[in-house]
Simulated assay, not measured.
Amino acid sequence: MLDNTDRRLLRIWQSEPELSLADLAERAGVTALKAGRRVAKMEEAGVIQGQEAVIDWRALGYVVAVSLRVTLDKTAARAFEDFLEGARAIPEVTEIQTFLGRVDVRLHVIARDLGHYQQIYRQRILTLPHIADIESLMTLTEVKRDEALPL
């Protein structure tokens, strides 16, 4: 689906997302028109789904990060749907993943401090429906975080 030119454009854009289309084209060794067409084609195909600002939540005063592994009571017909609907409504939940296996859902929660986390946990997380078990893993260090793909 992607040829070498597409991969080169994506590789450069991943490493320098602030590049204008003209600068991207120049770095990739193609014309701006060709780069524009290629980018538009990849957007239409869903390869490029958009651009977003990456904000360091620590710089905004959120210093606590906790990963919650949740096992749901799956005897309820809408256990997943009800739980996920409630979890999506919590602003401090920045990521939600579902799994097959012993753990059903993982939530990534951020907080300003431990007191704030305790408030979120007790007042928002524990009130979510259909929780059978929950395990908290507090993040100490983020060793690697890389959104770039090996193209």
Rank of each mutant, 00 (worst) to 15 (best):
L2K: 01
D3I: 04
T5Q: 08
D6L: 05
R8D: 08
L9Y: 06
W13L: 14
W13T: 07
Q14A: 07
S15P: 00
S15K: 09
E16T: 03
P17L: 02
L19S: 05
L19I: 06
L21D: 01
A22V: 10
A22Q: 12
D23W: 02
L24K: 00
A25G: 06
E26D: 09
E26N: 04
E26H: 09
T31Q: 01
T31L: 06
T31R: 07
A32T: 15
A32M: 15
L33R: 15
L33S: 15
K34Q: 15
R37F: 15
R38P: 04
R38T: 11
V39F: 13
A40V: 12
K41W: 04
K41H: 13
E44Y: 05
E44F: 09
V47N: 04
V47E: 08
I48T: 03
Q49C: 14
Q49L: 12
Q49E: 15
Q51A: 13
Q51M: 13
E52N: 05
E52I: 14
E52L: 14
V54A: 14
I55F: 12
D56Y: 00
D56C: 07
A59C: 04
L60Y: 13
L60H: 06
G61I: 07
G61C: 02
Y62E: 03
Y62D: 01
V63Q: 08
A65W: 03
V66R: 04
V66H: 04
V66W: 00
S67G: 11
L68N: 03
R69T: 14
V70C: 02
T71I: 12
L72W: 02
L72V: 04
K74S: 01
K74V: 10
K74L: 15
A76V: 13
A77K: 11
A77S: 12
R78F: 09
A79E: 00
E81Y: 10
D82R: 06
D82T: 08
D82Y: 11
F83L: 02
E85T: 15
G86H: 08
A87Y: 00
A89T: 10
V93W: 06
T94V: 15
E95F: 14
E95Y: 11
E95M: 15
I96Q: 03
Q97D: 13
T98W: 10
L100W: 14
L100N: 13
L100V: 15
G101K: 00
G101D: 04
R102E: 14
V103L: 05
V103S: 07
D104C: 01
V105N: 06
R106Q: 13
I110T: 00
I110W: 02
A111Q: 00
R112C: 01
L114I: 08
H116E: 11
Q118W: 02
Q118S: 12
Q118V: 12
Q119K: 14
I120M: 03
Y121P: 00
Y121W: 10
Q123L: 11
Q123F: 05
Q123V: 09
R124A: 10
R124F: 02
I125K: 00
L126F: 10
L126S: 12
T127W: 05
T127M: 07
L128G: 06
D133V: 10
D133G: 00
S136N: 09
M138D: 07
M138F: 12
E142G: 07
V143A: 13
V143E: 11
K144E: 10
K144W: 09
R145N: 10
D146Y: 00
E147V: 13
E147A: 12
L149W: 11
P150A: 13
L151E: 03
L151I: 07
